[in-house]
């Protein structure tokens, strides 16, 4: 039995302790905003925050997230008020298919916490999430817009 705190709520899930956090979020807790893309920590579609740090939930066993604060894409906006990253994503119309964007937004949110005014080089060095629609140009513009907001 795994005990988790996700988006400020407590959950229990009847799963093996080595089950990846991603699948506990999706299949046990019904939080499907966090996406499966590769399962090997390459694409970043599954990015969540664990104690504020961006992590790839496909490669984190659930027992390693116990006792920590997990935040998913569903936990960013409070009472429908978008965060500045989400707002920049909306204003710049970043998503195409949108499947990677949950992870992208989580990764960028963590980046801006670390570096509130990131340079292009900071973005290049930090953001390794894959987008197959090719929204990178809009992602970059939106990051700079969010930094200014």
């Amino acid at each position: 039995m795994a005990r988790l705190t996700v988006n400020g709520k407590s959950y229990t899930a009847d799963v093996d302790p080595d089950t990846p956090l991603l699948w506990v979020l999706r299949d046990s807790l019904g939080l499907t905003g966090t996406k499966y893309g590769c399962g090997v920590a390459q694409c970043g579609a599954c990015t969540v925050h664990i104690d504020g740090e961006a992590m790839r939930s496909c490669s984190i066993p659930v027992n390693m997230a116990e006792g920590k604060k997990v935040t998913t894409i569903e936990g960013l906006a409070v009472k429908g008020v978008l965060t500045k990253v989400q707002k920049a994503w909306l204003d710049n119309e970043v998503p195409q298919c949108g499947y990677c964007q949950s992870g992208m937004i989580m990764a960028v949110t963590a980046l801006l916490k670390e570096k509130p005014q990131p340079t292009d080089a900071d973005i290049d060095a930090t953001l390794t999430n894959i987008c197959r629609c090719g929204t990178y140009q809009q992602v970059r513009e939106a990051i700079h817009a969010a930094a200014k907001a």
């Binding site: 499907t32 996406k35 894409i73 906006a77 989400q86 994503w89 119309e93």
Partner: peptide, 17 residues
């Protein structure tokens, strides 16, 4: 676009969801 908002908050349901 008509289909942006839900993609920003984890609410857009894809087939896999």
């Amino acid at each position: 676009r008509l289909d942006t908002y839900d993609k920003l908050i984890g609410k857009q349901i894809y087939s896999i969801d």
